[in-house]
């Protein structure tokens, strides 16, 4: 008993200071491929298996919601793409807004796994670990959708999970928001063509905010939650 009190005091605070301060520790994020100007495009487009790298109006773009982090663009090409180290990837879907300030301080989150590979869920779980500690920001995982403000969905929505996911959404009180986490939840990812919903969660539920990545690191998910609570200003989606 006395041991852990002593140990606790000795260890001090290990949680990240994000969002008040920037988090710079190494290894917190896998990063995303970064398109820079004057890069040889044809090679890249042909090497990317998911059309994440594509051309619109002669401009080379990266659609992060399709990227499955297969590293081919940095391994199998003559001019490898460099990867950015950031993690603030969340973006609102068109016409979606954060919670109003009345509801936006503390959020209760119901996590539903609708067919992920386990990695996205693993990263979500880490939000409760002392290093990320989302409780300090007023975010809590609820055991039941009936008390939840946010439905956090990971994974490609399988045929067999569709019904359960829909029921969970319907059980939530309003105002409610849906957050899709991970490439699978956004577009199907590597399971595209399998027994899953075609466009990820958005084909079943109205998605408000998306966090790309395969899997997105805990801080990216935290960034999404902060944005949803209206406590972080982020870019708007164009979709």
């Amino acid at each position: 008993m006395s041991y852990w009190v002593k140990k606790g005091l000795k260890t001090g605070v290990v949680s990240t200071r994000y969002p008040k301060q920037e988090e710079t520790a190494s290894g917190i994020t896998p990063g995303l491929p970064q398109i820079t100007d004057n890069i040889n495009s044809d090679d890249l487009i042909s090497v990317c298996p998911t059309r994440a790298i594509h051309k619109t109006d002669e401009k080379l773009l990266l659609e992060s919601s399709l990227c499955i982090h297969c590293y081919r663009c940095s391994r199998d090409t003559k001019e490898p793409l460099s990867w950015s180290e950031g993690f603030e990837w969340a973006s609102f879907e068109k016409n979606s807004t954060p919670f109003s300030s009345t509801f936006g301080h503390s959020l209760h989150i119901c996590v539903v796994d609708s067919g992920d590979c386990g990695a996205c869920l693993n990263e979500t779980k880490l939000l409760n670990s002392p290093l990320y500690n989302m409780h300090r920001l007023g975010f809590f995982i609820t055991p039941s959708p009936r008390k939840a403000d946010v439905l956090l969905v990971v994974g490609a929505v399988t045929q067999q999970m569709k019904g359960a996911l829909l029921k969970a959404y319907e059980a939530m009180p309003t105002p409610k928001k849906v957050m899709a986490v991970g490439t699978c939840a956004l577009s199907g990812g590597v399971f595209e063509g399998g027994f899953i919903a075609e466009n990820g969660v958005s084909s079943i539920l109205p998605v408000d905010i998306t966090v790309p990545g395969c899997p997105p690191p805990p801080l990216a998910i935290l960034h999404g939650l902060l944005s949803l609570a209206g406590r972080k200003n982020i870019k708007r989606g164009t979709k």
Binding site: S26, G27, I28, T29, P30, C214
Partner: peptide
């Protein structure tokens, strides 16, 4: 996991 990211670029040793 951070060590794994340092070694491979990915926190789960993917690829």
């Amino acid at each position: 996991m951070r060590l794994m990211k340092l070694l491979s670029g990915n926190r789960f040793f993917k690829d």
